[in-house]
Design a protein around this nucleic acid. Structure first.
Length: 721
DNA sequence: GAGCACTGC
């Protein structure tokens, strides 16, 4: 069986890192063990992963610390292996725990964060002791005694959760959806039916997205089904990650037996440790009773990437786009084969660079004709994105020009050279004007390292940084600003409210958002009537809005459509608003504009969306129809999915599905009921089409992507009703 | 005349 440390044998050593505070574990490589699950070649692959030789160490840390922070670079194998390690701790319980006990335990553990009482905790310990008695040989099992023992890991994107889950299922030789499963927005591929326990096929390792885990907390605030929770890629610091980290810290106080594994990049590890350290001081004596270390453990696992040689420019470059293009050309001239990945900021830059390089290639003949230049950003159609993953033809060199989608979300094989502009587009939020902006901003050191690492996946690579070494060392921020501090917090605040966290300003965040943003979010929620004078969720509107997995302004619009009798239309609009864009991105704008005109409605974009949706349905959801009309087929498919989900939720909330037919006025009233906070007035005598917001007289203009941009500048925001 | 990247029972 597993090789974790037991009392009486030599204890693994934990060493202080010289750089201060970070603990490294020095472990002799584990002797290769025979696999319990066939698949020899897969087992060999597993053993080659750097994280594999830390197996004993990781098991030891997870047993003896309530929080373990694993610092692992890309390619270390932490995402697929650590859940399996944790699983081996849970396995014996799986065989012993009885159905009836599980049912009791669920009841015991499902109290809310606020209502959890001592007596319940005592029962939990009692059952824990019972399990311990069943396992006299192994003291470790008491640690997990009061749970059903499902290890969880949460992953950043839904496609990650899917691919990682199926990989892990394969490695363990089990069927996906049984012992190993995943849950993402539209797919629940798990088996949590307790009667499946007898058949041993109940899901014990579940991969899910942050959003799903947050939703699960609304029914089960203590996440009582899980005995180990692993938060993967915590350094990315998305809003959901930060909310989760704050909540998990709270849960730890109520469930000292819960084990957290946080996977993070090096630079963030210490601040993460500090965050979890603080909570335990307050907990004090209580945690000692469980025989666990109070301070979080940090373990560092090396990545499997190859060495990447760095190059910097000697002088700052005046134009990173030009610099990127000429760097690509000189790599192509001077360096041996290997694909090139260029990081720029956005679609505009990327299309320009692609055009420049393609022209250059045609102008110069060989060796430039061997270049295969491809753009990569999320707005591309599926087909165009797939080109990037196609094999590079023999004798060709692929040049992928990308946004930071290639930094974390997508991995390209075969890249040997990285050209890093040093910039990315980031969202910034101004709570005073209540406006979110995308701004080209210098990246952080953490991002720069991540980008460079992309060059070392297949063999030693080279990274060309279009900024000076001095800038990197002295001026670049170590980490990016957490999303929480750059965003509108309306959705975030209502989620916390729904979880029973009323003191938003006093919440223990990994990094606090500005009080202005939080106050602004509360203001909006108050004006929507979803929180009351005491900032508590109203009933039923507040609870209903929290139930709908959309921006509260959109949710309010859906509620309003019920009384106005246009819910069919409004859920269509809500579904379209929740996808990125239903238009394909085209370089030549003329055809796109003409296509838009075919659907454009004088009433504005929302009614235009309805026209498009109806057209799509009438075409029998035809991809051809989409292509003809410059509409993104993948996006429309998602609209159908989201709409179906919203329809179900609406029905559950008692919203009658009703169409207003050709009456668009009620539709506009419903839109206004949700979005009145954005109302603005056309300035009299303004020739530039300037509007001012009703709330704060902020200058605003119609966005060029709006149908109203071309249709003349009529004031389309209906007066409040 | 313009859209970094994700997510949601």
């Amino acid at each position: 069986m597993s090789q974790f440390w037991k009392p009486g044998t030599e204890r693994p050593r934990i060493l202080d890192d010289e750089e201060g505070g970070v603990l490294f574990y020095s472990a002799p490589p584990a002797a290769s063990s025979s696999s319990a699950f066939g698949y020899a070649s897969i087992e060999k692959q597993r053993q080659r992963l750097p994280v594999y030789k830390y197996r004993t160490a990781i098991l030891y840390l997870v047993e003896s610390h309530s929080t373990s922070i694993i610092v692992g670079e890309t390619g270390s194998g932490k995402t697929t292996q650590i859940p399996q390690f944790a699983f081996s701790l849970l396995l014996p319980i799986a065989n012993l725990i009885l159905l009836e006990e599980m049912r009791i335990l669920r009841t015991i553990m499902s109290g809310s964060l606020l209502e959890f009482s001592t007596s319940k905790k005592q029962v939990g310990q009692m059952v824990g002791a019972l399990l311990l008695a069943l396992n006299q040989d192994d003291w470790l099992f008491s640690l997990f005694g009061s749970c059903t023992g499902i290890a969880v890991m949460y992953s950043l994107s839904s496609s990650d959760a899917q691919t990682v889950a199926s990989r892990v299922a394969e490695e363990m030789g089990v069927k996906l959806g049984q012992e190993v499963g995943y849950t993402i927005r539209f797919e629940d591929f798990t088996n949590e039916n307790l009667s499946a326990l007898a058949a041993q096929s109940v899901t014990r390792i579940k991969f899910l997205t942050d959003g799903v885990l947050l939703r699960e907390m609304m029914d089960d605030p203590l996440l009582s089904k899980y005995s180990v929770i692993m938060v993967d890629e915590a350094h990315e610091r998305s809003i959901s990650t930060d909310i989760l980290l704050g909540l998990l810290k709270k849960i730890q106080r109520r469930r000292p037996e819960l084990r957290l594994i946080i996977s993070s990049a090096t630079i963030e590890a210490k601040s993460m440790a500090n965050f979890f350290q603080n909570s335990k001081r307050r907990r004090g004596v209580e945690s000692e009773g469980h025989g666990m270390k109070v301070e979080p453990a940090i373990l560092s696992v090396e990545g499997r990437g190859f060495n990447v040689q760095m190059f910097y420019v000697e002088e700052p470059v005046p134009d990173y786009l030009q610099a990127a293009v000429s760097t690509v050309l000189s790599i192509n001239e001077q360096e041996p084969t290997g694909d090139i990945l260029v990081f720029l900021t956005g679609q505009d830059d990327i299309d320009t660079a692609v055009q420049l390089l393609t022209e250059e290639a045609q102008k110069n003949g060989k060796p430039f004709s061997d270049l295969m230049v491809l753009p990569l950003y999320s707005g591309l159609s599926r087909g165009d994105q797939d080109l990037v993953f196609s094999l590079t033809p023999r004798g060709k060199r692929k040049v992928v020009i990308s946004t930071n989608i290639a930094e974390t979300s997508l991995t390209l094989e075969g890249v040997v050279y990285v050209v890093d502009s040093g910039f990315s587009k980031q969202r910034f939020y101004n709570p005073i004007t209540d406006i979110e902006n995308l701004v080209v901003t210098p990246i952080s050191k953490a991002s720069a390292r991540q980008r460079a690492g992309r060059a070392g996946r297949v063999r030693p690579g080279k990274c060309y940084r279009l900024y000076t070494e001095e800038f990197y060392l002295n001026e670049m921020a170590a980490d990016g600003i957490p999303e929480m501090q750059r965003s509108n917090l309306v959705s975030c605040v209502i989620q916390l409210k729904a979880l029973g966290i009323d003191n938003i300003l006093g919440f223990d965040w990994p990094s606090s958002p500005s009080p202005e943003s939080m106050v602004r979010a509360l203001e909006v929620l108050y004006s929507l009537g979803v929180v009351d004078d005491d900032a508590k969720l109203t009933s039923p509107a507040g609870f209903q809005v929290a139930e709908i997995p959309l921006d509260p302004m959109i949710s309010k619009m859906i509620l309003a459509s019920n009384e106005l009798g246009c819910s069919e239309e409004i859920i269509t609009i809500a579904a379209i608003l929740s996808v990125q864009s239903i238009w394909v991105s085209v370089r030549g704008r003329k055809e796109l504009d003409e296509a838009k005109l075919r659907f454009a409605a004088a009433e504005g974009d929302h009614v235009t969306f309805l026209n498009i949706y109806r057209g799509f349905i009438q075409s029998d959801k035809s991809p051809k129809w989409c292509h003809k009309n410059f509409i993104n087929y993948q996006a429309m498919k998602k609209v159908i999915e989201v709409r179906e989900q919203l329809r179900r939720i609406a029905q559950r909330l008692g919203i009658a599905l009703k169409s207003s037919g050709s009456d668009t006025q009620v539709v506009r009233k419903a839109v206004t009921a949700g979005f009145f906070a954005n109302a603005c007035r056309l300035e009299a005598y303004s020739h530039s089409g300037m509007y001012k917001t009703v709330r704060s007289s902020q200058e605003v203009y119609i966005h060029p992507s709006s149908v109203l941009f071309r249709f003349g500048r009529c004031n389309v925001v209906p007066s409040e009703t």
